[in-house]
Design a protein around this nucleic acid. Sequence first.
RNA 1: GCCCACGUAGCUCAUUUGGUAGAGCAAUGCUUUCGUAAAGCAUAGGUAACCAGUUCGACUCUGGUCGUGGGCUCCA
Length: 591
Amino acid sequence: MKNIIDKIEILRHSTAHVLAASVLKMFPEAKFAIGPAIADGFYYDFDLPRTLIPEDLALIEAEMQNIINKNYPFEKAVINIDEAINLFKKAKQDYKVEILEDLKNKGEKEVSIYQSDNFVDLCKGPHLDSTGEINKKSIKLIKISGAYWKGDEKRKMLQRIYGLAFYTPKDLKKHLAQMKEAEKRDHRKIGKDLDFFVFSDLVGKGLPLLTEKGSVIRRELERYIVDEEIKRGYQHVYSQDLAKVDLYRKSGHYPYYKKTMYPSMIVDDEELILRPMACPHHFELYKSKLRSYRELPLRIAEIAKLYRYEKSGELTGLIRVRDFCLADSHIFCRESQAEQELKDVLQLIDDVSRTLGFKKNKDYRYRLSLGNRKDTKKYYKNDQAWDKAEKILKKVLIDLKAPFYEETDQAAFYGPKIDIQMKNFAGKEDTAFTVQYDFCMPDRFDLTYKNEKGKDERAIVIHRSSIGSIERTIGFLIEYYAGSFPLWLSPIQVAVIPVSDKFIKPAQNIMEKLFAEKIRVVIDDRNESVGKKISDTIKQKIPYTIVYGDKEAKSKNLAIRVRGSKEIKNQKLEDFIKNIKNLIDNKSLDL
RNA sequence: GCCCACGUAGCUCAUUUGGUAGAGCAAUGCUUUCGUAAAGCAUAGGUAACCAGUUCGACUCUGGUCGUGGGCUCCA
């Protein structure tokens, strides 16, 4: 049953032991926490007498090489758990003792320990036979960071060392090259280089300012999604960014979300707050009149500005901000309609993703985010409803043959959800879009409709975002296309370059004709060489560049350079306009 | 928020142990009027993130604040 992934995990975990052994040499009083294999490598958490500095990594790595050279065997011994506790107590390994006591409480009778040279570690294994099996040229320590013991921010912060480990130096090199490529595609770097967004210390952290170019991208995405949703039967609304705190007390968001909400402000006798979500606003819209079963499903949608006080260390570029715009919607329906609505939402998300160029399975996958019945603090208590909701979400995913995986303890407090996880070039995943099944809010807000018999019935709410947070989606797109946006999203679609001053006038005429057709066009009439201007349009990733001079004036044909190609296409202006408008209207991914 | 690292011109970066800043690109001006990845010359541009402290003297050392990055935790 062992496959290659398991094997490389053995290598990675064994390398973590070698790391720990090296750290022990440098710091005999070091305390050891845990050191698992992770994607691409491993880490180990230590409690050390002093904080590590980056230069330490080279020293530790040198010691690791040494241990590998010595080819120590990994020797396994199975011992009684009380014996193990005594052993690690004597060694003053508090963290290991804590792990052992947890194991003992769970009923474990004996545990295995592994020894290599003088380093003994509690570990269930398995391991390589000896340290010499590790190729010392295919491992590398990469970074130091802090990490809470047991992931609990109230516990001590330990020092974590991350490393990479592969079978061959070639694999390591390949991985490092990929990391470099990801760095080049980093939306923060490209966003700055191509002038999409900026940050200002004075405006504040987590509050990006979209430049004109970035704003074009946002406007196009918003127009697209609003039109698309209206086509599919959504009612698009505008509601306000401010609301009384009472609204969130009623929705029940307040106790759960208090930490991520901005503090309230008191104006006259009202206590107001910047909204962290639009749900309750849409509920109030729903409740503004008596609803009939005939109106359902009722889909209220909004490009909603939301404010969340994210911890400062969590902010990154456009991916995680404190003030963002969510393509949000709440679908009010009968329980019997929920399955079809969920399927339609997933279809919408698929269509949106395809339009943006993201590929299912390759670029994104589905996460069925489940609750935890035992955690009544985090989740609304109603076991039966949770079971039902989780079942229906799973059924929908299976029916649609969607590639998904399950994760517990990832649900919203009011119900389980399907998260669409987008993978970036660095291999990390972020939630792009989300679909949630809510049986809790309808109770709290008393969301009802009149059924066929004129009796009140409880509605179900599906929360969903189609194109996600616009900011985050722009971030994904920047990285996905490395700034070379599809034509319809390109801030500048066409650049016109007159060969010399003599041709500025006719070039302006061309520009005006394109402009009149709502094509985003600029003219580069700077006193620079043609080569220089071409170089600039390439740097700016402008899809089409038209060079205009004597030849074009005589032939009435345009010389068009298409992004990504060195060849020059010749085309009449009318044909070019027709062609490009067609590509824009179809949101073509090709030029 | 916590651990670590970082913050020098619009951008990318120099300034070897403390002696008050320099380059390329960009910008502006002039020359050139140019054919598909960077023409030439000149000019201007800095309270070294901010605030204290140590020192005869701080970009450099110390402390604090703000911001950025990588993690932890959290999440759209």
